[in-house]
């Protein structure tokens, strides 16, 4: 092999850069996020349920929100009929966040854990707890 010294040195640098995040986090105290649903509005609900079952929302809320967005803005359809047959006003600020008024403990806890930064909040206004 030509230039074996350079190649091996290069490989070492490459591997150490790639491995850095894993090494860095070894032993770090990482807790699985538990999004909280203990807001005043949710606590007063007789049946504590979202627009769709919890499992669906957990996995698919981003797709559902995209559909809601296009439906409300582009088609002017503002009412969502859930799979259980109940009706909801399509609105992130006025429906979702009405119940989930704890953005920090609900949305952010998972999003931070997953290191995703949805751009919703560039425009949509989060409930009071967060605003300065």
């Amino acid at each position: 092999m030509y230039d074996s010294g350079k190649i091996i040195a290069g490989l070492l640098v490459f591997v150490s850069i790639i491995a850095f995040p894993f090494v860095y986090n070894i032993g770090a105290d990482i807790v699985k996020p538990e999004p909280k649903i203990d807001t005043p509005v949710i606590q007063q609900m007789a049946v504590k349920q979202c627009v769709e079952p919890k499992e669906f929302m957990r996995a698919e809320h981003m797709q559902l929100l995209n559909k809601w967005r296009d439906s409300a803005v582009r088609d002017g359809n503002r009412v969502y009929v859930g799979s259980r047959g109940d009706h909801y006003n399509i609105s992130l600020q006025n429906t979702c966040m009405h119940c989930h008024s704890n953005k920090k403990e609900f949305c952010d806890s998972c999003h931070n854990y997953m290191a995703v930064k949805p751009y919703c909040w560039d425009c949509h206004i989060a409930p009071k707890e967060n605003s300065l």
Binding site: E60, D75, G76, N77, R78, V79, Y80, V81, S83, N89
Partner: peptide, 16 residues
């Protein structure tokens, strides 16, 4: 996988 929420589940509000 993404198509399991049907677009037909959206409708205009009753007062619109």
């Amino acid at each position: 996988r993404r198509d399991d929420v049907e677009a037909s589940q959206m409708e205009p509000g009753p007062d619109a």
